[in-house]
Design a protein around this nucleic acid. Sequence first.
DNA 1: GTCTATAAAGCGATAGAC
DNA 2: GTCTATCGCTTTATAGAC
Lengths: 203, 203
Amino acid sequence: MVKNERTAPRPSAKREAILDAAQACFLEQGYAATSMDAVASGATVSKATIYAHFASKDALFAAVICRRCDNSSYTTGWPDGSGEAREALLAAGTVLMTLLLAPETMAMYRVVVAEAVRQPDLARAFWEEGPGRGKERLTALFAGLAERGVLRVADPWVAADQFAGMLRAEVFHRLLLGLPLPDGRTIETTVAAAVETLLRAYS
Amino acid sequence: MVKNERTAPRPSAKREAILDAAQACFLEQGYAATSMDAVASGATVSKATIYAHFASKDALFAAVICRRCDNSSYTTGWPDGSGEAREALLAAGTVLMTLLLAPETMAMYRVVVAEAVRQPDLARAFWEEGPGRGKERLTALFAGLAERGVLRVADPWVAADQFAGMLRAEVFHRLLLGLPLPDGRTIETTVAAAVETLLRAYS
DNA sequence: GTCTATAAAGCGATAGAC
DNA sequence: GTCTATCGCTTTATAGAC
């Protein structure tokens, strides 16, 4: 850890505590309902200290979202695309949908969507680092399967779009609205149904 | 128009003006960023008049959402399911996706999602009157096509879920975040691709 | 950098006249 | 029902001591 970090501010203990507390507040209660007093209290820090690190509430919010985006790169279980098509799609679908339905992801999505109109740059960054990146990996997977001839996909982008869409159907939208799920619909059944449909369509 | 309306309050000119102004504010700026002063100004009415009609800001918001839900029943162009499967699905998909991508629908979705945690009852009402109703119609359509034997669908709910999901894929989520659309992706191409995929899978 | 204390403004909601 | 005027509270942000 040399001191040669010009772009990002170097992490300090207080700064991290502030970001942690702010993330908890923003994700649980939304942007507007979160007060700087609540963040200060959560971080056991005075409000003035927050303003020493972040220019404004907007800047603090942006910092929280960006930090979260940078950390959203865990891809354990992602298939390399070398085996059977069904196997690869089941693995990819399970990874994506598990990440998608994680409470933290849902909360993140809610708050970014809510603030998208007010902070367009943030919405763009969120998409590119989050859903957009997953979409690219999925497109690459379909392209690889098509190239190897195990799947007859004319346009990998469209196939990835359809796959992602089927994963993010009613289950996702009900969770986003905080509603109970329909009986018997789980990650496994949804992924399996989507994979079977795609295999029948593209074989 | 007899005076026998016990449930809903009878419409008055001022009341409607308030609801119109409130809807414009809430959908454009969100719940928290909308002040009662702004609504009063938009309706050319005093703030006290608003409180004569609505108990609180929350109540006003709920009234706006519910009124909008009641009006979202235009189904021009919805297929009766008597003809060919491709024809019926193309028609249904176009109707759904056109409604889905309408700016007003997008704004509504944004604000309801943002307030879902704080007002769960409202989120539930929105789902049942909006997306839920569309989903039911779609499920019935698939069930009818399956019954007539023109489509081999084991579970109409799953088929409807997948169709709706494919319609609400990247295009929908990018619009929700206020981002530009990828080149060459329109309502027509998305609907057509989804229909072809489902036909290949379920024929 | 970090604190306490406070400024300055905006908010939802209400009182009281008409 | 509708208005004007205002209350009481919370908010973001800052000043000044250390």
